[in-house]
Nucleic acid binder design. Sequence first.
DNA 1: CTTGCCTCTGACGTCAACGTCAGGTTTTAG
DNA 2: CTAAAACCTGACGTTGACGTCAGAGGCAAG
Lengths: 125, 125
Amino acid sequence: MTVTEAATERLIRIGEVARGAGVSVRAVRYYEQQGLLIAERSPSGQRLYRQDAISRIRFFQQMFAAGLTSRRITELMPCWDAGHTDADQRAMLRAERDRIQAKVDELQAVLDRLDEVIAITDNHP
Amino acid sequence: MTVTEAATERLIRIGEVARGAGVSVRAVRYYEQQGLLIAERSPSGQRLYRQDAISRIRFFQQMFAAGLTSRRITELMPCWDAGHTDADQRAMLRAERDRIQAKVDELQAVLDRLDEVIAITDNHP
DNA sequence: CTTGCCTCTGACGTCAACGTCAGGTTTTAG
DNA sequence: CTAAAACCTGACGTTGACGTCAGAGGCAAG
């Protein structure tokens, strides 16, 4: 890809981004407000995004689902964007991983309890 | 256990229950307000609980951690308390199990992404 | 008796990720 | 050119499981 092509990359507006990522327009504005997704602006003030905004939002959603806050995601973004990490970030990464792993174990325990009672009640129709 | 022994079972007050279960007194009152844990009352109006209140609260906490609401827990309590289940309850049990299983998969995916970036950044100190 | 801790009932506050509404501008379709 | 659709900026509302505070009563110890 040449510099000229990069400079003329097709930009999309917020509605298309939201539909593409399966979230609301309000959500996309919220991500900007949280510093997660900064958009360019058209002369009239409308937000303009590059294509990768959609996959970035999908990434945010995945992290949200895992219990990370937008603040934490902002702090850890450089680890993916720049591939660079300092001590604080490494500590946060491990802390989040451990927390999520503990959560998985917790959920698995509940799954077992549910499956147990499901098995019992299925035998008592 | 005889009827007489059951009638004289040692009852405990809310503070002991809260400490035993590792939650706040406020939380215990909240569970009662949600219909999860009904307490007897002393003549002066203080809540009196049986010993098993502590394990019940631990159970609630586990379910909360899995994303069940207090309403849902109330609806599903008979499945454990009475060992009995109707069609609606069986459907809810399966729905919750499926939701939790999906969540586990989601968390596992995030774990993989975190471990990936942790492995990479550990090689770039 | 009183000191100090425990408990009671409201009732408002918190946090995160948005939803929703109001009122106004911009872009697009015909 | 005009109307509909999309976008903008505030700003208040929502949800669930509590936290916190106020004001009042209850209970064992010394």
